[in-house]
Write a protein that binds this DNA or RNA. Structure first.
Lengths: 338, 338
DNA sequence: ATAAGTCTGGAAAACGATTTCTCTGAGAGT
DNA sequence: ACTCTCAGAGAAATCGTTTTCCAGACTTAT
């Protein structure tokens, strides 16, 4: 119960606490014989330095904060794992928070991170207008890395994916397959992900001489239910689309569900391309053609960026943009038409 | 950069640090006027008590450690959310670790938790023989709650699901539908989940007068690949089964993939019942009939158990057993046969 | 042989909060 | 009016480390 402190080790080895500390921190100015004696004592007592005390003294911790916007979304799983793996390799722990897309909760967690004196923070912001909070954190000296949803011009480190190009790839693919009436279900415009994927959709249409039709654009909230509803709306149109590009994984599931419910064959009667791959995307009712994000790498990259900044706070800010990859399965109809 | 301390607040309000501390902790022995002055100062400076210092002084923290065995498995998502929600409601933070089913990593994280002086620990053990580590943690006075994989007799608090009954429900359902040659793909015997689901399978067979056939039992490792391989083995048998009960979600995905690959129609040519529901289980190639675990509640319950123990360390140990629910979709063939 | 310089390791001051102890002053009781 | 009591607030110790400063001891050069 009363855990062993540096004091106990010092007593056991018959030296001062300072010496034990020096041994722990590999300070060369300690005699070999003493060092061994101290190390024996540490072994014998099973001593483990108290991280809290260390942190207090050092005014810095080896804890990374990670704020996710929706932990129920499997998209974040490999991201978390990417972060965790890199953090683990650098002996850092992870505090995980789930803002649940709720700005209040997010704000509260930001304060927790501050009080917790985490070394740095990786976050998927729930809303774009959090700049004041971020600048507040920056003022305290906690480095922040933004993930996934990132305005390019804001002066922080950030990691994201080339959303516009990814979306354009998907839509271009549909066009190449011969679809002409391509709808999109996209995300909220106040999130860069929603905006950029929409832009990609639109630019691909225009680059290929297809008319842009406002009626074919539905704005969802990245949740399954919204994908389901909006797909039904599209199906109810007088002149429904022949293909849908859905800009995230959960809404794609919703779309698929709506289509199946109405017994619309995918891709024969409606082609579908989604955003975000999942390990089971190929096992779905209709194996999904998707724009795949390198999620694990996103997590890794974010953590690397953070470690880099911790090592050298003076570096210029950087936004790392990773590329997506179009994975062609069956929901787009490529196999049918080729 | 130099964050505001209790000292600054004291200076600003013209009182001693002790008084500020008293205000913070709602100590009644402080004059109303002074209290207001201090609160103003706190507001004005935007002061936030340093949790590290608090933790050091109080020798206890408001951090809960959560060690998961495989973060890539969506099964843990709602568990994490359940834990997070309850923790959040009690102003506690979460340190998340992923042991990756690796005992070495797990051991290392246990040490981190110890050094981190977390208030308590919720863990999904990667192996059953960790008793020495657990008792070590218990010796230090960190309460541990075991989750999911739990030996009933071990004297810790634990939360699990009634695996045997869940498995038996599934198999009984298959039997009722008329299947007679029912195989199972189960988990490692050294995990209670694997063992108990196997027992449930076997007892359901025997209770219904069906012969138990060793050849129809395959032992996997709870990963997709293993479900895939073992299903292929079952299919390659001279006399293949007519139904398979797979004892976790990932292996069920593997099974489904193997079946689809060989163009075996589910459930017409092979019925399938899995363990663990996922939000998209109904959207798969064949909508899965599954034994659903109340994952969110598991997380909640584990956290409640932990909070309960933190509040009163003297309580007797308790194992909470939640019930599963059979969700009937199409992969078992119920709709065809009814 | 002595002075200067190098090592070693101990004592003590931080880090920021809490808590016990102590002291001051005001109010009450005689 | 004097003492006793008690409330309220400050001083100081404490939590477990790290780190600076300093004092001895030993080495080396003159």
């Amino acid at each position: 119960m009363p855990s062993i402190t540096i004091h106990d080790v010092a007593d056991y080895a018959g030296v001062s606490r300072a010496t034990v500390s020096r041994v722990l921190n590999n300070n060369p100015a300690v005699d070999q014989a003493l060092r061994l004696r101290v190390e024996d004592a540490i072994q014998a007592l099973g001593y483990q330095p108290n991280r809290t005390a260390r942190r207090l003294r050092a005014q810095s911790s080896n804890v990374i904060g990670l704020i996710i916007s929706d932990i129920r979304n499997p998209y974040f799983l490999s991201i978390i794992q990417g972060v965790e793996d890199v953090a683990y390799a650098h002996q850092m722990s992870l505090i995980l928070c789930n803002s649940d897309e709720d700005p209040t909760k997010e704000q509260m967690y930001l304060r927790v991170m501050e009080a917790e004196h985490v070394a740095g923070l990786i976050m998927v912001p729930s809303q774009s207008s959090e700049e004041q909070q971020l600048s507040r954190l920056k003022k305290i000296g906690i480095p922040v890395i933004l993930l996934d949803r990132v305005a390019d011009d804001f002066e922080v480190d950030a990691v994201k994916v080339d959303n516009e190009r990814g979306a354009a790839d998907a839509v271009r693919h549909l066009i190449a397959l011969g679809y002409r009436r391509i709808a999109t279900i996209t995300g909220p415009v106040h999130l860069t992900t929603g905006r950029e994927r929409y832009t990609g959709y639109r630019s691909a249409l225009e680059a290929n001489g297809l008319a842009y039709d406002e009626a074919l654009v539905k704005i969802g909230n990245f949740k399954t239910e919204s994908g389901y509803q909006l797909t039904r709306e599209l199906l109810a149109m007088a002149e429904p689309p022949d293909a849908i590009f859905v800009s995230n994984n959960m809404m794609t599931l919703g779309a698929l569900r709506a289509l199946r419910e109405q017994e619309i064959r995918v891709p024969q009667e409606m082609a579908l391309v989604g955003f975000d791959d999942m390990p089971w995307s190929g096992d779905l009712y209709s194996p999904l053609t998707v724009v795949s994000q390198p999620t694990y790498e996103l997590g890794q990259e974010a953590t690397n960026l953070l470690l880099r900044r911790l090592a050298d706070p003076g570096l210029p800010f950087r936004t790392v943009i990773l590329q997506t990859r179009l994975i062609v399965r069956e929901s787009c109809g490529a196999k049918l038409r080729s």
